[in-house]
C-alpha cells in the first residue's frame, strides 16, 4: 500500500526566521517529484522537514503535519530515528564516511539496524550497489576507502548507502550540484531507473534537470509553495505569474 507523502500546513523556523509558510502538498508515490526555486527559497528546508532532519540544526522548529507512506512523522511519541530509517537521504556534497571502506559505507545503515548475518549484508550491498549503477565499477575495490573514488562515484556510494536499507522514500538535496556533467548524467539516469520502485523527492536549482527527471514539480519562493503541478504543465503553461517569471529567467 503506497500513499506517498501528504504535507499539511507545514511551517518551519530557524530561530526567529520563519522560513516555510503553511506548505500543503500531496506527493505521489513511486514517482519523481522535483522541488525548484531560487536559493534561499526554503526548498532544502522543505525536504529536510520530511525526514525530520530540519530539527537537527540548533534553534530550528517545525509545526504542521507530514505523513510519509502512512506514518505520521510529527506525531507525539514518534522517534525521528524511526522516521529516518524509512526515508533515505542524499546530500549536496557527497559525504561518504572517510574512515570506512566502500563496502562498509554501503552497509552502515544495515549494521546500525543490527543486521549481522554475513550473507544478508553481502547480498544487500551488492543489490544496493547495482541499483546505484556502481557495482561494475567498484566490485573489485570494495575494500578501498570511500573517499578514494571520484566525486560522482562517491555520490553513488551515498545513494547506495541510502538504498541498502530499502527505504520507501528517497530524498535528494541537490545531489548533482557538486558534480561534473558526465557524473550528473549518470545520476539522472539512475533516478529514472529507480522511480518505479521508490518515491523520490529531488531538490534542484537546475530547471532542466527538474524537467528531465520528474513527473511533478513544485516551485518555492520566499518560503511559500507558489505552484505545484505536473512537470510539463508547470514548465509550459504555468498558472502563476511568479512561476512564469522564474522559469523564463526573469529573476533569480
Amino acid at each position: 500500500m503506497a500513499d506517498g507523502i501528504v504535507v499539511r500546513d507545514l511551517n518551519a523556523w530557524f530561530g526567529n526566521a520563519h522560513v516555510l509558510h503553511g506548505i500543503g502538498v500531496t506527493i505521489a508515490p513511486k514517482a519523481v517529484t522535483a522541488v525548484i526555486g531560487p536559493s534561499g527559497c526554503g526548498k532544502s528546508t522543505f525536504i529536510r522537514c520530511l525526514n525530520r532532519m530540519h530539527e537537527v540544526v540548533p534553534g530550528a522548529r517545525v509545526t504542521g503535519s507530514v505523513r510519509v507512506e502512512g506514518l505520521d512523522v510529527y506525531a507525539p511519541g514518534i522517534d525521528p530515528v524511526q522516521v529516518r530509517r524509512k526515508i533515505g537521504m542524499v546530500f549536496q556534497k557527497p559525504n561518504p564516511f572517510p574512515t570506512m571502506s566502500v563496502f562498509d559505507n554501503v552497509v552502515a545503515g544495515l549494521r546500525l539496524g543490527g543486521v549481522r548475518e554475513r550473507s544478508v549484508i553481502d547480498e544487500a550491498a551488492e543489490r544496493a550497489l547495482r541499483q546505484a549503477a556502481l557495482w561494475d565499477e567498484v566490485k573489485d575495490q570494495l575494500g578501498k576507502s570511500g573517499v578514494s573514488l571520484s566525486g560522482g562515484q562517491q555520490q553513488r556510494v551515498c545513494i547506495a548507502r541510502a538504498l541498502a536499507v530499502e527505504p520507501e522514500v528517497l530524498l535528494m538535496d541537490e545531489p548533482c550540484s557538486a558534480l561534473d556533467p558526465i557524473a550528473t548524467a549518470k545520476i539522472e539516469e539512475l533516478i529514472l531507473e529507480l522511480r518505479s520502485t521508490l518515491t523520490i523527492v529531488i531538490v534542484t536549482h537546475n530547471m532542466q534537470q527538474a524537467a528531465r527527471v520528474s513527473e511533478s514539480t513544485g516551485f518555492f519562493l520566499l518560503g511559500e509553495l507558489v505552484e505545484f503541478d505536473v512537470t510539463r504543465q508547470l514548465f509550459t503553461n504555468p498558472r502563476d505569474k511568479r512561476t512564469e517569471d522564474y522559469i523564463t529567467g526573469r529573476f533569480g
Binding site: 525526514n51 532532519m53 537537527v56 530515528v81 524511526q82 522516521v83 529516518r84 530509517r85 524509512k86 526515508i87 533515505g88 537521504m89 546530500f91 556534497k93 559525504n95 561518504p96 564516511f97 574512515t99 570506512m100 552502515a108 545503515g109 546500525l112 539496524g113 551515498c158 548507502r161 541510502a162 536499507v165
Partner: peptide, 23 residues
C-alpha cells in the same frame, strides 16, 4: 555533513557520534 549522513541513515545521536564523529 558527516553527522547528517549518519542521522539520515537513521542513526541515534550516540550512533552518529560513534560511526561518523569519533572515527
Amino acid at each position: 555533513s558527516q553527522r547528517e549522513a549518519a542521522l539520515a541513515l537513521g542513526a541515534t545521536r550516540w550512533e552518529t557520534t560513534r560511526i561518523a564523529v569519533l572515527r
